[in-house]
Amino acid sequence: MIELRNVTKRFGSFTAVDDISVTIPRGEFFGFLGPNGAGKTTTIKMMAGLFTPTGGEIHINGFDIVKQPQEAKMTVAYVPDQPFLYDKLTGREFMFFVGGLYKMEKKKVRERVEESIEHFEIGDWVDKRTEDYSQGMRQRITIAAALLHDPKTIIIDEPMVGLDPKSAKIVRETLKQKSKEGIVVFMSTHSLPMAEEVCDKIGIINRGKLVFTGSQELLQAYKKDLDGKFESVFLELTK
């Protein structure tokens, strides 16, 4: 479960995220949308523990990310918008590295790495150093590494950037499957069709404020009021 209570983030006089509150229960797939610079990545970075909120509280699976960061992070898989990896490590080494950080047993890491290699179809190049990887390869390694420790919550920022159609399908199916298994998925995306297809609930952020939160049903109602397109609803809410 993810709970954001009156979360605010300021950088000097600029307020990037302004008093956001949202609760995402177990097993829900939450789509987080918004125009560029709206505050999506800032919100996600606060949830992942990379930014400290200026105000409010973030609880992940019952743990406060500021006060109990290690307990909270132990239950989370975070995938950043830019899949930066250690250039001098191979993809396999990076996965082992991340597995170690999550205190996984070596035997378990070995098994999970082999499963991930097969699942994400990365066996042909997983033993090359990541300095020669394409954006899509990096993205796949990042997602595979994030899911190694069987997280209860997945926080994923723009997962489809740089992925070819086949990889995008694998990632989409994986996230849907995880949601069905009872895992919370918090996904930021620019892709409206994908959000419509996979998300149970959608949040739209604009200029740091959450301007819409609701289920697919509520979204359908909004769409009917306009021209029946999600794009029109999005543009209306973010203008």
Binding site: G49, L50, Y78, P80, F84, Y86, D87, K103
Partner: peptide, 14 residues
Amino acid sequence: EGMAFWAQLSAPLN
């Protein structure tokens, strides 16, 4: 550590 430092900062690591 470069931009890949996120991997450590977002992990359950003191």
